[in-house]
Design a protein around this nucleic acid. Structure first.
Length: 504
RNA sequence: GGUCCGUUCGUCUAGGGGUUAGGACACGUCCCUUUCACGGAUGAAACACGGGUUCGAUUCCCGUACGGACUACCA
């Protein structure tokens, strides 16, 4: 049986888009599922768009998510190098092969020539192909001596693929089944740029073949160029071992038309990058999923379900389960809107599964002191279930513990009613006699004291909350009172009674 | 404009010639909680349209509409 080898092939032209992360995930899942090899290849053939640090960012992102590759520029491997800029010799050698076979040709057209050819057909119908190439300056339209002179003079040129004139190109896509395109609609794509670098099409096909890639799993934006790639495999004589294609549906904007872009994240307030990314052009740091408090396992689970599903009603899948359940034939065909609310739900689910200990450092940090296990679990119990992100937990505890006595005047006006001061005063006067300072005992003592003085305890609960926390809503008050301690509660109560309107 | 791809609740989707078209997110209501969340229950909510094929089409075929991608010496 054929070895499974898949690759994730990003270009280091900026941060990793979340759609790219999903592509990486699907590749990874297929490899792990089938006992194959997951390769990361860096496609850095565009010198103009190269961004320093982007490659490092890509690997940091994969590390954070736990998508560890088997072969890459970092890890090496039997098919090194894995950075296309280091494989120039390979490409020129292969271009020569095509040139010799007469399946590719030299073209000397200037950018201006191309532009004017296109401009002559304002409907955008002009293509460099079998119908037009004889009108252009290339090795097919000129004499052999002219060609030799041009080449000898060092005239800049590109190499183009000679697309056959009249052929039906039919190929199989795992998610879309058979796709058919007529060669007359295809352009003679540039294979080798005038700077000597290969284009994506050439480098991609050559590398996939040489690296023995079995499945090409990539975004749907590549579907239109897949026929060109098929032609290339054919031209090289590699059609027999051509990889299987799987073009993934695109990630769409949450609202409106078009595919998801960086701008959407900023406009709508959610991340579209895995990790924070420094946008040099605007000199701003854009927070990623990690910085926004998303857990990697939640992001992974969320992303896995954007365009794929296991066909059961289970939604929570750890990485191992994802690997088990994954299969290419359950990938959907249609574009998927990106809905951050669902991501939040996943995050909430995974956050609830975290052990008390997982929050230890964060909570001790907020509290500024070591917290014994038993107390820790009470703090966690107090706030965890109402939070979606870890930072919310720490923030909530911080707000609770660092209450400075300031209360919203409207809240006070509405809720601090006539009995509040008197009733709470009664409780304060006997606060020291609460037998043991635990949530249950506090509640008992409070009720007894207040009812004993003729007040309805239920009506005093909200004023008590306001006095203790300054808020009209929040986590369990009695448990919080236990945690914050008797003395602090007494202080806060006294404070409130002094400062808030005494309506009696 | 051309080429290719797609279309089930607002969103992610299951399903597939005969189903009360299922689940999840979000939303509404109720319960729990003398708060707010969480949780539980429940409700509203979909087969784009028009033609075929068929006893029967949401499911198959063809058109139309709509959406998307591509249309660079970018990937």
């Amino acid at each position: 049986m054929q070895k499974i080898r898949v690759r994730f092939a990003p270009s280091p032209t900026g941060s990793l888009h979340i759609g790219g992360v999903r592509t990486a995930l699907y590749n990874y899942l297929l490899a792990k599922k089938l006992g194959g090899t997951f390769i990361v290849r860096i496609e850095d053939t565009d010198q103009a768009r190269f961004v320093p640090g982007a490659e490092e960012y890509i690997f940091n992102s994969l590390r954070w998510l736990g998508l560890e590759e088997d072969e890459s520029p970092l890890k090496g491997g039997p098919f090194a190098p894995y950075r296309q800029s280091e494989r120039m010799a390979v490409y020129s050698e292969h271009v020569d092969l095509l040139l010799k076979k007469g399946l590719a040709y030299y073209a000397f057209d200037s950018t201006e020539d191309l532009e004017s050819a296109r401009a002559a057909h304002p409907d955008g119908s002009w293509q460099y192909n079998a119908a037009t190439r004889h009108e252009m300056r290339n090795s097919l339209s000129m004499s052999g001596t002219e060609l030799e002179t041009l080449l000898a003079d060092g005239t800049p040129y590109v190499v183009r693929l000679k697309v056959p004139k009249n052929e039906e190109i039919r190929f199989h896509d795992v998610v879309r089944s058979w796709v058919m395109v007529h060669s007359s609609t295809l352009e003679d794509k540039v294979l080798l740029k005038s700077d000597g670098m290969p284009t994506y099409h050439l480098a991609n096909v050559v590398d996939d073949h040489l690296m023995e890639i079995s499945h090409v799993i990539r975004g749907e934006e590549w579907l239109p160029s897949a026929p060109t790639h098929v032609l290339l495999y054919r031209a090289f004589g590699w059609e027999e071992t051509m990889p299987q294609f799987a073009h993934l549906p695109l990630l769409l904007k949450p609202v409106g038309d078009g595919k998801l872009s960086k701008r959407d994240g900023e406009a709508l307030g959610f991340p579209v990058f895995p990790l924070s990314w420094m946008d040099e052009s605007r000199n701003v740091e854009i927070p990623g999923f990690r910085e926004k408090g998303y857990l990697p396992e939640a992001l992974l689970n969320f992303l896995a379900f954007l365009g794929w599903n296991p066909g059961t009603e289970q939604e929570l899948f750890g990485m191992d389960e994802l690997v088990q359940a994954f299969s290419l034939d359950r990938i959907g065909k249609s574009g998927t809107r990106f809905d951050i609310q669902k991501a939040n739900w996943f995050n909430h689910q995974y956050l609830q599964q975290k052990s008390d200990d997982w929050f230890k450092d964060g909570i001790e940090n907020v509290l500024g002191l070591p917290v014994p296990a038993e107390t820790l679990s009470k703090w966690v119990a107090l706030v965890k279930e109402r939070c979606t992100f870890p930072y919310e937990i720490y923030e909530m505890i911080s707000n609770l513990t660092h209450f400075n006595g300031e209360v919203d005047q409207n809240l006070l006006k509405e809720k601090w009613h006539a009995d509040a001061s008197a009733g709470l005063g009664v409780f304060l006067s006997c606060i020291d006699s609460v037998a043991s300072w635990t949530a249950a005992e506090i509640k008992l003592a409070f009720t007894a004291a207040v009812e004993g003085a003729g007040f309805k305890s239920g009506k005093l609960l909200l004023p008590l909350r306001i006095a203790i926390t300054g808020k009209g809503a929040g986590p369990d008050l009695m448990l919080f009172m236990e945690l914050v301690g008797r003395d602090e509660c007494a202080i806060r109560l006294r404070n409130a009674l002094e400062r808030f309107p005494n309506l009696i």
